[in-house]
């Protein structure tokens, strides 16, 4: 068991980040090596300046808000929560004073962010079971949602245990010791990380997160990088 924990928590994490980083860079480079479109692909009567408009289109999703408001609400919840969780994970490396505007230990939102994300993911998953979205979906769409759901569920459990039930065996200091050691390339696993009652959750969370990162550059999740340039084409 120890060996499996070690493999997931150390070499697999490094591997996942390498695949994610290298894969994304290579995929993007392959895309930009292609010749540009010689003619405009603009849709007219959108008067905002090109880049500003494309930024608004990418981050505020105005077309979704207009044509599918319910989906828009969940998409906004999902993406904002995702951002908050990424910030929360940074706090697992060290304390950031800027984030302490609202005083908290780690992860803003007292566990509600993970809950909201879970609900949004369930919404995304269930709407794919209904036609015509079902007819549009391919296995990748389901795999990604399920993978994210598993990652978020196991991750949130740890957060919920700590912030709702006062679970104290795995402390923030333990996470920081583990994660900073990874950053400094001197990996070590504090005994609380591998030996506490919630360690299996951590291992599963990290395992699914690793899978997601490995999957990322080869999947539609690349839209995270591509949304802005593709929207720019429409803005001309």
């Amino acid at each position: 068991m120890e060996t499996i924990y070690y493999l997931v928590l150390v070499p697999m994490v490094y591997g996942a980040f390498v695949v994610f980083g290298l894969g994304s860079v290579l995929r993007l480079a392959a895309l930009w090596r292609r010749p540009p479109q010689p003619s405009t692909l603009r849709i007219h009567a959108r008067r905002a300046p090109g880049w500003l408009g494309a930024l608004a289109d990418s981050f505020l999703l105005p077309t979704v808000r207009r044509h599918n408001p319910l989906l828009w609400v969940f998409l906004m919840i999902f993406h904002v929560c995702l951002l908050l969780l990424i910030l929360g994970h940074l706090e697992l490396f060290k304390r950031f004073e800027v984030l302490q505007v609202i005083e908290h230990q780690v992860f803003l939102g007292r566990g509600l962010v993970g809950l909201a994300l879970t609900l949004a993911l369930l919404f995304f998953l269930f709407r794919r079971f209904v036609s015509p979205n079902r007819d549009l979906s391919v296995p990748e769409d389901y795999y990604l949602l399920i993978l994210l759901l598993l990652t978020v569920l196991f991750g949130s459990q740890m957060d919920w245990a700590r912030s709702w039930y006062g679970y104290g065996e795995l402390t923030v200091e333990d996470y920081r010791a583990y994660l900073m050691s990874l950053v400094l390339l001197k990996p070590q696993l504090p005994s609380a990380v591998t030996g506490s009652g919630h360690s299996f959750m951590l291992v599963l969370h990290v395992f699914f997160a690793n899978l997601f990162l490995i999957f990322f550059p080869f999947s539609k999740i690349m839209h995270a990088f591509l949304a802005l340039p593709v929207n720019k084409l429409r803005r001309g």
Binding site: R34, P36, T63, N133, D141, K220, L226, L233
Partner: peptide, 22 residues
Amino acid sequence: KLNQAMRLYLETCSRCGVCTEA
């Protein structure tokens, strides 16, 4: 046909279905 724009169009779709009614 695979220039930058075409690659962007082919890689980015998330099959969200917002275009259904369009």
